[in-house]
Design a protein around this nucleic acid. Structure first.
Length: 570
RNA sequence: GGACCUGUGGUGCAGCUCGGAGUGCACGCCGCCCUGUCAAGGCGGAGGUCGCGGGUUCAAAUCCCGUCAGGUCCGCCA
């Protein structure tokens, strides 16, 4: 039907007669003797010259047969890739007519996302979506190549899986053949891939769809895609190397620039200096510890186990309203308050300044090489909350949009094994219950569990958590110690993970793995703030699909077959 | 579950503080004119339940309350 794509034509083809197909992007009529038609296909725009009038409208689907010609001198268009040429002596065949689209299909205006999502198929015709989805395809392809080159085998795992209640809420699928019983959609192929290790697939990967029925965000959808991998007879460092190589390959494929190696820091360091487990290294503004200087303070606001400070360069010019807003934000984050100090030429300007001892005042002035014109923010609290509050303020004040600036990757390692206790007093696993503790910390499980480090690690890019992984427990004795620390009884463990535990009795190799979000990675490559921009058919924040209307009711017959009865709505 | 922002012809905005006739701009759409345009140009035209409901008022796009939808965030996301 067509000989080539619009933008593949160039001056070297002059004289050739070709047929091209696409959509009418624009029509410019000059009376009944001359008209120009801009034809758009996925490659770009090509101008066709029509001698005579032409009854086509924008978005008509046409096939144009014409002769590739050089444009007359002075009529070339440098802004068009095909601006030197045009099709002349054209025959136009209308393949489909079209109504005027509900919004403009050029990239000159931002269209409300509600409208774009309702007419996603039209949104696809715009450059932004074409570029983003093709970029995503390129990243997928690069990841596959990279994993295969590293000896990994792609295995698909089921979407209909058994309920194994863990951290996040699962999507549930009622069974027709088994009344009152359910499948769930996987939150990740975690257990499936560990069983592949038991089965001898010592290097597995998958570009896997995962589903979690949790509230949506700019970086979270119900369903998202991960590069999921697992390997046997490897250490943590092996996994970091596998993943680093795949990510760097993808970055090069997507951006044309290959980042250098990915640095790493411990979780403890990230919390201490950046107040978060996903530090954004595109800007400095590290947290500083003033606990020692305030150990015996008389100032009530600073009487706490920990005092942390953050220097805001140039922040002394903040008006009172901005400082109040930051204080408000700190309180929302759980701080008792926020102390601020403006560094002026001879003193500290602050409501609290006159209560400070000279030593304390000097300690504050000394933070991070503070200079006149800087602002210093301090939070006094328990250690972790103090870090987290200032870490959040650091991001609020200093962080550029996630899509801007250099791409700063970092590995965060040595996560704690447990992150506190639940309402029943049981420890809560920070990663998942199959995570291997740091070997040196095994004895702490009973004595001081919150100090136990795990062999779990995250990959972070520009302050976004791309993914996480861990070395897994492959020994029954350690697994049962962890389950008991988590308050999971033998019976419950058997009930939830019995098939995994039983598989491990038949010779489980030491193994470790990782999974990272492709949506997030591609969004950052694409310079998008929101993963919806790199997903073909995303859901809204309330989990609806504006194009299909999902979720929707099903027929009475379907409900009968599924043995379902709705007893309440809301 | 909570906080905040947005909702005005098909699209993108302005109007809202401080109430006074659906007022304005750009794009698109329809008709006519136009032989080298390319964000074509000129002339004319159509198109509105100001998200929805209630309240205050002589009078509401504008103020108040509620509600719906979209977004950002907190909670949640092993």
């Amino acid at each position: 039907m067509r000989d080539c794509l619009c933008a593949t034509l160039n001056a070297s083809m002059v004289g050739t007669r070709v047929s091209v197909c696409g959509w009418v992007a624009k029509r410019r009529e000059h009376g009944e003797h001359l008209a120009f038609l801009d034809l758009r296909d996925r490659s770009g725009i090509l101008q066709a010259v029509i001698e005579g009038s032409l009854d086509v409208r924008p978005e008509y689907v046409v096939r144009v047969t014409g002769t590739v010609s050089l444009r007359p001198e002075g009529t070339r268009n440098e802004r068009l890739a095909t601006g030197d040429i045009e099709l002349s002596e054209c025959e136009v065949e209308i393949l489909a007519s079209a109504e005027a689209p509900p919004f403009q299909l050029d990239d000159r205006v931002d269209i409300d996302e509600q409208v774009r999502l309702r007419y996603r198929f039209l949104d696809f015709r715009r450059d932004r979506m074409q570029v983003n989805l093709r970029l995503r395809a390129k990243v997928n392809s690069s990841l596959r190549r990279s994993m295969e080159a590293q000896g990994f085998c792609e295995v698909e795992t089921p979407l209909l899986w058994a309920p194994t209640p863990e951290g996040s809420r699962e999507f549930v699928v009622p069974s027709r053949l088994h009344p009152g019983e359910y499948y769930v959609l996987p939150q990740s192929p975690q257990i499936a891939k560990q069983l592949l290790m038991v089965g001898g697939f010592d290097r597995y990967f998958q570009i896997a769809r995962c589903m979690r029925d949790e509230d949506l965000r700019a970086d979270r959808q119900f369903e998202f895609t991960q590069l999921d991998l697992e390997a046997s007879f490897v250490t943590q460092d092996d996994i970091l190397a596998f993943v680093s190589l795949a990510v760097l390959d993808a970055a090069e494929a997507a951006t044309g620039v290959r980042p250098s190696t990915i640095p790493s820091m411990t979780w403890a360091h990230a919390l201490d200096r950046y107040g978060t487990d996903k530090p954004d290294l595109r800007f400095d503004m590290q947290l500083h510890d003033l606990s020692a200087a305030f150990a015996t303070t008389q100032v009530k606001a600073f009487s706490a186990p920990c005092v942390k400070a953050l220097r805001v360069p140039g922040g002394a010019s903040y008006p009172r309203s901005r400082l109040d807003q930051l204080t408000e934000q700190a309180k929302e984050l759980g701080a008792k308050g926020l102390a601020w100090f403006k560094v002026t030429s001879d003193s500290l300007e602050s409501p609290l300044a006159r209560f400070l001892s000279e030593e304390e005042s000097n300690a504050i002035r000394g933070v991070d090489g503070a200079q006149v014109g800087d602002l210093l923010l301090c939070v006094a609290d328990e250690y972790a909350p103090a870090c987290k509050v200032l870490g959040a303020l650091r991001v609020a004040i200093g962080s550029p949009p996630v899509s801007e600036g250099p791409h700063q990757y970092v590995w965060v390692t040595e996560f704690p094994m447990f992150e506190g206790v639940d309402e029943d007093g049981n420890l809560v696993a920070a990663h998942h219950p199959f995570t291997m503790p740091h070997v040196e910390d095994l004895d702490l499980i009973a004595s001081d569990p919150l100090k136990v480090r795990s062999q779990a690690y995250d990959l972070v890019l520009n302050g976004w958590e791309l993914g996480s992984g861990s070395v897994r427990i492959h020994r029954a004795d350690i697994q049962s110690r962890i389950f008991s620390a988590l308050g999971v009884s033998d019976e419950e463990a058997q009930n939830r993970f019995g098939f995994l535990l039983s598989a491990f009795k038949y010779g489980a190799p030491p193994h470790a793995g990782f999974a990272f979000g492709i949506d997030r990675l591609v969004a950052i490559f694409a310079g998008e703030e929101n993963i919806r921009e790199v997903i073909a058919y995303p859901k809204t924040q309330s989990g609806t699909d504006l194009m299909t209307g999902a979720p929707k009711d099903i027929t009475e017959r379907q409900k009968r077959e599924l043995h379902m009865k709705i007893t309440s709505k809301g």
